[in-house]
């Protein structure tokens, strides 16, 4: 087998590298810049050119990062490694590993739905497919983005008419920019950002992704009237004193978890918009099928149900533990905590 799970993450012995290790290693291949995949401290990284800017923000300007184009083949100790778009966030990649005729693909996180802020997911044929399973249950099914964004605009308009500001929580890296991009040209605004969001949005702009104009909240005078504004902030800002400046407001969260009513109510949010950067149940199964893989490794999420489903439908499958046990929204909570680091890093 080309890969094996270790206590630092997936290891390719033949090529002497790890994929998304959660502890410092010599050679790390990174699928994308989210904190539970790109960990600080390894001696060298290999990542996609598309994601270079955001990886540097996350891993530090000093980090030794070799960037490659999608599809470009790099040989590591005789193992052929290439990156292919995963459609999750800017620069997100699947890692294709080929050695002695055997092909293994590590998906990282991915979605197959189109997203203007990153390259579209490409199915890659392989023998072994390592898939995430964040939303690996049939209760998770997404409506198309344009329908969800229409709800967001209606919510904003209702708040504006009621003299309130609209505070939308979205992960600072990826979801926030996807939402912003989808609001380009919409009759909405002003669009105001939290520091964590602003900094990564700048990275997106620097990477050539079109973003609407945003106002960084921290640069605005105290006591400004925010009625009718749309504020985009990381989920960690929910319930924090930072929100007080916006006065009367309505709060919402854009996340796949908002498919579950209890997940929204538990956070005392007014609205939940079901918008995810992961595959839903039908897309997960379709993506697995498209790889033609004989064997599927399932990690990160609802591992056991997905493994059992795959086995019951005649495929070889195994569950691979990750340090980030995301059986439910715990994984997104981790992501929330990680983005809190960014909150400190004001632009």
């Amino acid at each position: 087998m080309l890969l094996r799970p270790t206590d630092r993450g997936l290891f390719c012995e033949a090529g002497n590298f790890y994929v998304d290790p959660w502890q410092p290693v010599d050679r790390a291949v990174i699928t994308h810049a989210h904190g539970d995949h790109a960990r600080w401290g390894s001696r060298s990284y290999l990542g996609s050119r598309e994601g270079e800017r955001v990886m540097r923000t996350r891993l530090g300007e000093q980090a030794h990062i070799r960037c490659v184009d999608f599809g470009e083949v790099v040989t590591l100790d005789g193992v052929r490694v290439s990156l292919h778009p995963a459609g999750h966030i800017l620069g997100s990649a699947q890692v294709r590993i080929e050695h002695q005729g055997e092909v293994c693909v590590v998906s990282g996180d991915y979605k197959t739905e189109p997203d203007d802020t990153c390259s579209a997911f490409e199915p890659v044929r392989c023998h072994t497919f390592v898939t995430e399973s964040t939303f690996g249950l049939p209760i998770f099914r997404w409506d198309p983005q344009h329908e969800v964004m229409a709800e967001v605009r209606d919510w904003w308009a209702g708040n504006r008419d009621a003299g309130r500001s609209s505070i939308l929580f979205a992960y600072a890296l990826g979801k926030a920019q996807r939402v912003l991009s989808a609001l380009r040209g919409a009759d909405i605004g002003p669009i105001v950002t939290h520091g964590a969001v602003e900094r990564l949005t700048r990275d997106y702009r620097d990477s050539g992704v079109a973003m609407p104009d945003t106002i960084y909240a921290g640069a605005e005078p105290r006591g400004r009237d925010w009625k009718g504004a749309l504020i985009v902030a990381p989920p960690s800002a929910a319930g924090s004193p930072w929100l007080r400046r916006f006065g009367a407001s309505s709060t919402a969260f854009a996340s796949g978890w908002m498919r579950i009513r209890g997940a929204r109510r538990r956070r005392s949010l007014d609205r939940g918009f079901v918008l995810s950067d992961h595959v839903d149940w039908p897309a997960l199964l379709a993506a697995i099928d498209a790889t033609g893989a004989e064997c599927v490794w399932v990690t990160h999420g609802y591992r056991e149900p997905v493994v059992r489903w795959l086995r019951d439908t005649g495929r070889e499958a195994r569950s691979v533990a990750s340090q980030w046990e995301g059986e439910d929204d715990a994984s997104e909570l981790d992501a929330t905590e990680l983005s809190a680091e960014d909150a400190a890093a004001q632009p």
């Binding site: 249950l137 049939p138 209760i139 998770f140 099914r141 498919r259 579950i260 009513r261 209890g262 609802y302 149900p305 059992r308 489903w309 019951d312 439910d328």
Partner: peptide, 26 residues
């Protein structure tokens, strides 16, 4: 109606925590 096995429905129910809601989602 959903064409899924019972155990998979149960998994969904554990995640949702509400039977009526689980049914409407699957």
């Amino acid at each position: 109606e959903a064409g899924i096995p019972e155990w998979l429905f149960e998994e969904g129910y554990h995640a949702v925590g509400d039977l009526a809601e689980t049914i409407s989602l699957v």
